[in-house]
Each structure stands twice: as C-alpha cells, then as structure tokens.
C-alpha cells in the first residue's frame, strides 16, 4: 500500500508540473517569437532581422527568430504558445485552421516560381509517369502536394492519380535524389528549383502557375490569437517591418542581395539573379486563398470551408 501512496504522489507531481509547463505562455508582452523556414521566399524576413526593422518600431522589444524545418513544426510550436508569428504556405495553414487552431493570416510575403522538375527526357507530361517512377515533395498536405494534385486532376482526371508515386523528402535530400536518379521528379521551390533547372536536360513538367491557373501567394505570415490580442503593438510592428523589407527588396535588389549573400552563404550575383527571377515577387498581398480552400475542401483535405475571408485574416 505504501507503493500506492508513493505512486499517487509521483503522479500528482507530474500532473502539476505538466499543467505549469503546458498551461502558461512563456514569453511576456515585450517579446515576440517569429518562425520561418529556409529558402529565398523568406528573404524579406532576413532583411527585417538584419536591419532590425521590428526593434526600430518598438525599441525595447525582444525579437526572437527561429528557423524550423517545416510548417508542421511551426504549427506545433504555435499551438503550444512558443511561437507568435509563423511563415509558410497556405495549405498547411488551412489544415491547422480546419482543426480548430486559433490563428489567422497576418500578411502575405512572397510569390515564387515552383515546379515539378525532371531530368528524364522520356518524361514530357504527367501522363508519362510509370508505376515505378517516384516523385519527391516535402510532405503530404504541403503546397507542392496540392499543386501536384491540381495538375493531376486537370491532366489525368483525378487529384490523387499520382499519390502512390509520391515520397516525402526535404528539399536538399530531394535535389540529391533527383541528381542521383533515385527519383524521377521533384516538386520544389527556389533556390533548389533553380539549381535543378541548371542541370543539363532538366525541364519542368508543370509549373506552379500552370497547376494553379492564376497567381498565388507562396509564403504568408500567420499569427496566433494570443499574439494578436495581447501584443498589438508588436504585431503591428511585425507587419510593418515585413512591408518595409518587401519594399526594400523590390526597390534596392542589389543592396538586398549583398545583405542576403551572408545569410544564405551564396554568391551575391547569384542571389540577385534569383531575387529578380521571373515569377519571384515579394508582396504582402495574399493571393489564391479562395481557390486553395475550395480545392482542399472538395478533395477532403479540410472538412470545413471558410464562409468568409474574415475567418482567415486578422485585418
């Protein structure tokens, strides 16, 4: 019976500490944590960080930047209150929203060329994939997956026609798998997209714009309700900082490339080329959300369809 008592004590202790750990938001009103991912589409955030554009607006603010491997990780960090503002594509946002996450889109960030690249001359359209061919993309439910499904629906008649050929690989693993020939196609974004297209024989089977049919935002910023409600000043500062960074890149691409070449450890000329590449647009406007949510709802990726845009945007 003594053991039972000990056990109860231990369990009570665990319970209390769990409650303390999960229940409280760690950070205070004076700090904001922003999560982004790797890639040129996030370039304005790097500028905002380097030029301290948020600190410029809220001088005593403590700004924490974290880089995460994928949107799923950002989502989890935002659910547990560790991250206030996160950046990623629209489809993972809609999945979170559909599951009851209390978050909305705060700003757009970039449009970007995306595409399904292959090195195989035999492959000229989606119809040419054999059952053994493999298509890599970062994860199911990602924007790359949704774009591939849209293209498959249009060209092959069914959104999941290519799903059994999909394997999930991070962008850099996908590049090496494509180059080594262990996968036949890779749905990716810059700079990986540009690297792959520079290979001899590389060609795009379908581009993001072709698949979507109209311009769409690649990366947007989302903020949690906790951040929006209780950190209005910082929230505003973030949005304005992003706007300023976007304008800076559009107006001074050369200077931006110079700053970014340190961050990405890439040649300045190359960055400039990528920043100004066709289809690479930094813009706080959010495009395509209606079409994404309609498509994802009709294919069962989300259960509910937003009734109005107000459900999805803070302002």
């Amino acid at each position: 019976m003594n053991r039972m008592k000990d056990m109860t004590k231990v369990l009570l202790l665990i319970m209390v500490s769990l409650m303390l750990m999960i229940g409280c938001t760690r950070d205070t009103e004076g700090s904001v944590t922003i999560a982004d991912q790797y890639g040129l589409a996030y370039a304005p955030l790097q500028i905002a960080k380097l030029q301290q554009l948020i600190e410029k607006r809220v001088p005593d603010a403590q700004v924490n930047w974290v880089q995460m491997a994928n949107t799923a990780a950002i989502r989890e960090a935002m659910v547990s209150g560790r991250v206030d503002v996160g950046f990623g594509a629209i489809p993972p946002f809609l999945i979170g929203w559909d599951h009851g996450m209390d978050w909305k889109i705060a700003t757009g960030l970039s449009r970007s060329p995306l595409g399904l690249v292959t090195l195989d001359p035999e492959l000229q359209s989606l119809r040419d994939f054999s059952a053994e061919d493999r298509i890599a993309l970062p994860q199911p439910g990602s924007i790359q997956h949704m774009l591939l499904s849209m293209a498959a629906e249009e060209q092959l008649g069914s959104a999941d026609a290519l799903d059994t050929r999909i394997i999930t690989l991070s962008h850099p693993d996908g590049v090496s798998a494509l180059l080594s020939g262990s996968i036949q196609a890779h749905f990716t974004s810059p700079p990986y997209l540009f690297t792959e297209l520079e290979q001899p024989g590389a060609h795009m089977l379908v581009s993001g714009t072709e698949a979507f049919g109209e311009p769409f935002s690649f990366i947007v910023g989302y903020a949690s309700r906790a951040c929006y409600d209780s950190k209005q000043k910082l929230y505003r500062a973030c949005i304005e900082a992003v706007q300023e960074a976007v304008t800076f890149i559009e107006e001074h691409p050369g200077e931006a490339a110079q700053l970014l070449s340190q961050v990405y450890e890439m040649d300045q000329e190359l960055i400039l080329k990528y920043l100004t590449a066709e289809g690479m647009v930094y813009d706080t406007q959010v495009l395509g959300i209606r079409k994404f949510s309609e498509f994802m709802h009709s294919r069962g990726y989300i259960e509910e369809e937003p009734r109005s845009l107000e459900e999805l945007f803070w302002d």
Partner: peptide
C-alpha cells in the same frame, strides 16, 4: 512513401502533417 508501403512511422508522420 505515400503508396501502400508506408509503415508506422509514416502513419504517425501523416497524422502529424494533417494535424
């Protein structure tokens, strides 16, 4: 692998990305 050959790790990962 999204096809029929996914294992438990894949099952968990898939649940994760779809929240």
């Amino acid at each position: 692998v999204m096809g029929a050959s996914g294992g438990l790790g894949w099952y968990i990962f898939q649940r994760r990305v779809f929240m």
